[in-house]
Design a protein around this nucleic acid. Structure first.
Lengths: 326, 326
DNA sequence: GCTCGTTACTAGAGCGCTCTAGTCGAGGAG
DNA sequence: CTCCTCGACTAGAGCGCTCTAGTAACGAGC
């Protein structure tokens, strides 16, 4: 910076002004400084800049590196942070890197706020974190003091799925459960309430999960049922589970949707591929990311207190894995 | 830090010594400082620490947020950086965030080295980057001056795939191509050389790609061939392509492996799921990540010049999508 | 001519650490 | 008793920026 200033014949402060784009430099000097910087290959040092600014304007994002839907959210978070003039710092959770570790790295970095995507942290840990800095739990509904929540209306999503299947004529619908995964409890609840309201037969849940493998396992359970008792439709915890289920069921000779209708959840990119064409409940990744950033930003910029959970409406996307029974 | 020092009755410098774990503090003071810090909830500020240290010991990693295999590599990069005492800083490439942008963010952060996973940057841009800081291209083989390359022996992988199929009795094997994706050219070459060596019929490539959708499209082309001319086996550019292909082909009524054998590439986690059980060429994510970090570290720590490409051997993993023809 | 406002610019004190070059006191060697 | 060494600790400069409180120059208005 010193060198750039010398070359442009100005003070260091002026160089700073030019690079921050603040007022206080004439057009001519601005150009001279920029030219000098280009000659010298100078690029301002973010760390130093953040250190001297009191605000860092950094938002930490903890996400599961392998999760397809987390990837969609990261895209949206990057985009939303950009317009709010915050910078996203990623910290990934992988099989060998725990969520605690990911959070710790972000804290040492002095992020001003933190967004946890599908966090599995116990709520005391979340409260503790929230006491230190604005924390938003994205996807997972937690009742932890101080923690903001942005999530999809999971229950409503399942209601839509069940209603859709009911409308097609299905009367025996089963839910492949997500266990303890974020949103799973709400989806179960949505499934049950819709089933009750529509007067469908009560069916025990299928043990599902988050991955294709879990879906395939659920398919095994389903297929082991005597044909008479076999449901004609399944709502799966998520798309990956649905995909695994569809795959396994088809390989067993059951046609989808003729023999079995399947609805997923998330609308990951793969769900829309022509050869898959999964009917699913779309989570609005764009809105979720945007709202998460907005929440963090409003707490940081306008000193607002944590608010009530923000719930985003899901939408049914009808594709080719659902149809009338038989 | 000042407060911690005051509370422990020592100087700031001593606090710094304790937190860095350097020699020069007695056991008793060390404990006093740690206790004071715990009371105050003090945690050192990484940014300030890095600013004053000349070295930042940060390694930037640019990766595709959606790519399953990149996720596996990120896991391995985190682990490897940990042992080399470097810190990984992620910068994601998404549909709305270009690789250039991802790199720029890392440079402003003052990373000391950079690892590009499956980079799509033109080689002049890579050389320019490499002139600024140690750069390693992971997965993609580039001939750009100053750029280190760590990759799988893609050609060898395809040779293994073709040889495996040949051993099962296949004489008509086609390759679903990856186009301009990293490694695609080498895989094509490996396929061709193996086919030639084994005296197989020359077959035009199937237009493939990186995603399940591309694989499904390739399946369409394959199925449109008159049965007599139809190959009995396919080597796919990667697992996702293979998965899409298998799926589409099965839905068209062709059995896998009875009617068609399929070999993937990568060995992503999903390939090993029981209901998928894809025969594939395993890329050693652990070795790739470790070698990439080692390369960067050896240039940084020991001032070594960029070296020749590091090529990791792939391994055939036989599962359930390959078998004898007919 | 003088004051006042503006615009263009600068000096220099931080930001929260690290690290070099010390000081200080307690032993040990001569 | 002096001189050294050594371990424990501290002062203070510096990392590369930002930002407040200025200064200088130049018109405009009276």
């Amino acid at each position: 910076m010193e060198d750039v200033a010398a070359r442009a014949g100005v003070s260091r402060a002026l160089v700073s002004i030019v690079f921050r784009g603040t007022a206080g430099a004439s057009e001519r000097t601005r150009e001279r400084v920029l030219a000098a910087a280009a000659d010298l290959g100078y690029q301002p040092d973010q760390r130093a800049s953040r250190l001297s600014r009191t605000r860092t304007r950094m938002l930490g994002v903890v996400f599961g590196v392998g999760h397809a839907f987390h990837g969609d959210l990261v895209d949206s978070l990057y985009a939303a942070a950009d317009v709010s003039d915050y910078e996203v710092v990623l910290s990934g959770v992988t099989p060998r890197r725990s969520e605690e570790e990911a959070v710790r790295a972000l804290l040492a970095e002095r992020c001003e706020g933190i967004v946890l995507v599908g966090s599995a942290l116990p709520s005391p840990a979340l409260s503790e974190l929230a006491a230190r800095l604005p924390t938003v739990s994205l996807l997972r509904d937690v009742r932890a003091t101080g923690v903001d929540v942005v999530r999809t209306d999971d229950a409503e999503g399942l209601r839509q799925a069940v209603t859709h299947l009911h409308g097609l004529g299905h009367r025996h619908i089963v839910h492949a459960d997500g266990g303890r995964a974020p949103g799973a409890a709400q989806r179960r609840r949505g499934y049950r309430s819709a089933a009750r309201r529509l007067g469908l037969e009560a069916t025990p849940l299928l043990p599902g999960g988050l991955t294709e493998e879990d879906g395939a396992r659920a398919a095994g359970v389903l297929l082991s049922l005597p044909p008479g008792e076999r449901p004609t439709a399944v709502t799966a915890f998520n798309d990956r589970c649905a995909l695994g289920l569809v795959d396994a069921v088809r390989r067993a000779g059951l046609k989808v949707p003729e023999g079995l209708s399947v609805v997923g959840f998330d609308d990951i990119r793969a769900a829309s591929y022509a050869h898959i064409a999964l009917t699913t409940i779309r989570q609005d990744a764009d809105a979720l990311g945007r709202l998460a950033i907005e929440r963090a930003a409003s707490r940081l910029d306008r000193g607002q207190p944590p608010g009530r959970p923000v719930v985003v409406a899901p939408a049914l996307v009808v594709r080719a894995t659902t149809g009338a029974p038989r």
